[in-house]
């Protein structure tokens, strides 16, 4: 099995009963150099395929689950990874069995170029925004979560939110959708007169607009059959 290469660490050894996850030393040259610099071991060549256990990483640098959020940061769904991952650029930085000065906090590791005052977050008062309940990300992979969040919401629904997420509206097969930003969402159903197609082989019939459902900005719905409301 794997044995942690961090100095004084017994993860993976018989003496260690607890199980920890191991992260492989990166192959990438730059990353490897960073890891070598970080792991305080003299006269020891750190090579890819060796491992460092999770105890030497700050929890913030370990990705244990995938969190899907909408664009406002509201969590829609969570999925725990079978195998935890490291954030990009994460390096081992906690060495409990070494002098304290060999471990370092996450902040100290930031490069001068990256270090800057964090952008002030806009304060969003969820209570004041009636559209919060309906806001969601339109990534298809989380469409199920999206639809649920909408269905569950008793909050105020708006045309703009609906239009923003127009792709998640499920409509009957054979229908088509037309989207006119800020004005209208229209669903149409066309038919083709089949008797005309029999006249000649090369005849191409023009589809007839049979049914239409129009949704206006006031969320009023109008249904048409052969252009009659």
């Amino acid at each position: 099995g794997h044995r942690c290469i961090a100095p004084g660490c017994n993860s993976g050894y018989d003496s260690c009963k607890e199980k920890y996850h191991f992260f492989t030393v990166p192959k990438d040259d730059i990353q490897l150099r960073e890891w070598t610099k970080a792991i305080p071991r003299k006269d020891f060549l750190i090579k890819p395929r060796q491992v460092v256990c999770e105890r030497h990483f700050h929890e913030e640098e370990i990705l244990r689950k995938r969190i899907m959020t909408d664009k406002d940061g509201t969590i829609l769904a969570e999925a725990v990874y079978k195998i935890p991952k490291l954030k990009e650029g994460a390096i081992p930085s906690i060495f409990p069995n070494c002098p304290k000065y060999l471990s370092y906090s996450l902040k100290r590791r930031k490069l001068p170029l990256i270090r800057s005052s964090s952008p002030k977050k806009k304060k969003t008062d969820k209570k004041k925004d009636p559209q919060m309940d309906c806001a969601f990300n339109s990534k298809p992979s989380i469409e199920i979560a999206i639809t649920d969040s909408i269905n569950d919401s008793v909050g105020i629904f708006s045309f703009s939110k609906l239009q923003e997420n127009v792709n998640s509206i499920v409509f009957p097969s054979g229908w088509s959708r037309h989207d006119i930003p800020g004005k209208l969402i229209m669903f149409s159903f066309f038919i083709v007169k089949t008797e005309e197609t029999a006249i000649t082989e090369n005849y191409i019939p023009t589809p007839i607009l049979y049914k239409r459902v129009c949704l206006g900005v006031n969320l009023n719905v109008q249904c048409f059959v052969m252009n009659i409301s």
Partner: peptide, 17 residues
């Protein structure tokens, strides 16, 4: 219209009517 489902229900009903 109160939610996306309302619209989907209308479309479903109108499709089969």
């Amino acid at each position: 219209l109160n939610c996306i489902k309302d619209l989907e229900d209308i479309l479903k009903k109108f499709d089969t009517s």
